Lab assay of single mutants.
Amino acid sequence: MIINNLKLIREKKKISQSELAALLESSRQTINGIEKNKYNPSLQLALKIAYYLNTPLEDIFQWQ
């Protein structure tokens, strides 16, 4: 199971779900699903999230 700190990191950087979704060329619903652990992002999307949040991938997503 993958757990994530996306919501915590996103809020700390003062970025809304909609703003992050626009940067990622994704939907706000996708970001919401990832944050609620209802959806696991593809590797490509996970890497883009890490890039746009300027945060190491392993700080956002962790195996448990």
Rank of each mutant, 00 (worst) to 15 (best):
residue 41 P to M: 06
residue 25 E to R: 14
residue 64 Q to L: 06
residue 56 P to H: 06
residue 22 A to W: 10
residue 42 S to W: 04
residue 51 Y to K: 09
residue 10 R to W: 07
residue 22 A to N: 12
residue 42 S to F: 04
residue 16 S to T: 13
residue 1 M to H: 06
residue 7 K to H: 08
residue 30 T to H: 11
residue 55 T to C: 07
residue 13 K to Y: 10
residue 42 S to K: 05
residue 51 Y to V: 07
residue 3 I to R: 09
residue 11 E to S: 08
residue 28 R to M: 13
residue 4 N to V: 08
residue 53 L to S: 00
residue 32 N to A: 15
residue 5 N to M: 07
residue 8 L to G: 10
residue 11 E to A: 08
residue 14 K to E: 09
residue 15 I to L: 13
residue 62 Q to L: 08
residue 36 K to D: 13
residue 62 Q to S: 08
residue 35 E to D: 01
residue 43 L to M: 13
residue 41 P to D: 02
residue 5 N to V: 05
residue 3 I to K: 14
residue 26 S to C: 15
residue 21 A to R: 02
residue 13 K to I: 09
residue 1 M to Y: 06
residue 34 I to Y: 02
residue 54 N to C: 11
residue 4 N to K: 01
residue 2 I to S: 08
residue 9 I to V: 12
residue 10 R to S: 04
residue 30 T to S: 06
residue 38 K to L: 15
residue 26 S to W: 06
residue 20 L to D: 00
residue 48 K to S: 07
residue 61 F to K: 01
residue 53 L to A: 00
residue 36 K to P: 02
residue 19 E to V: 11
residue 21 A to S: 06
residue 6 L to T: 02
residue 31 I to T: 01
residue 20 L to V: 01
residue 49 I to E: 00
residue 32 N to V: 13
residue 35 E to G: 02
residue 26 S to E: 15
residue 54 N to H: 09
residue 44 Q to R: 13
residue 30 T to A: 09
residue 14 K to G: 15
residue 46 A to S: 05
residue 13 K to L: 14
residue 9 I to C: 09
residue 56 P to S: 08
residue 31 I to N: 01
residue 10 R to P: 04
residue 24 L to P: 00
residue 27 S to Q: 06
residue 19 E to K: 13
residue 28 R to Q: 14
residue 31 I to V: 11
residue 53 L to N: 00
residue 58 E to N: 12
residue 11 E to H: 07
residue 18 S to C: 11
residue 2 I to Y: 10
residue 48 K to M: 10
residue 53 L to C: 03
residue 53 L to F: 08
residue 9 I to S: 01
residue 25 E to D: 14
residue 37 N to W: 09
residue 7 K to C: 10
residue 7 K to S: 08
residue 7 K to N: 06
residue 60 I to Q: 01
residue 50 A to V: 04
residue 36 K to W: 07
residue 24 L to A: 12
residue 19 E to W: 08
residue 38 K to S: 10
residue 34 I to M: 04
residue 2 I to A: 07
residue 24 L to I: 15
residue 56 P to I: 07
residue 39 Y to S: 08
residue 24 L to G: 00
residue 60 I to M: 05
residue 28 R to V: 15
residue 53 L to P: 00
residue 52 Y to K: 05
residue 20 L to W: 02
residue 56 P to G: 06
residue 62 Q to K: 12
residue 5 N to A: 05
residue 36 K to C: 11
residue 38 K to F: 12
residue 29 Q to P: 06
residue 13 K to R: 12
residue 27 S to A: 07
residue 52 Y to V: 15
residue 44 Q to S: 13
residue 23 L to D: 05
residue 34 I to Q: 02
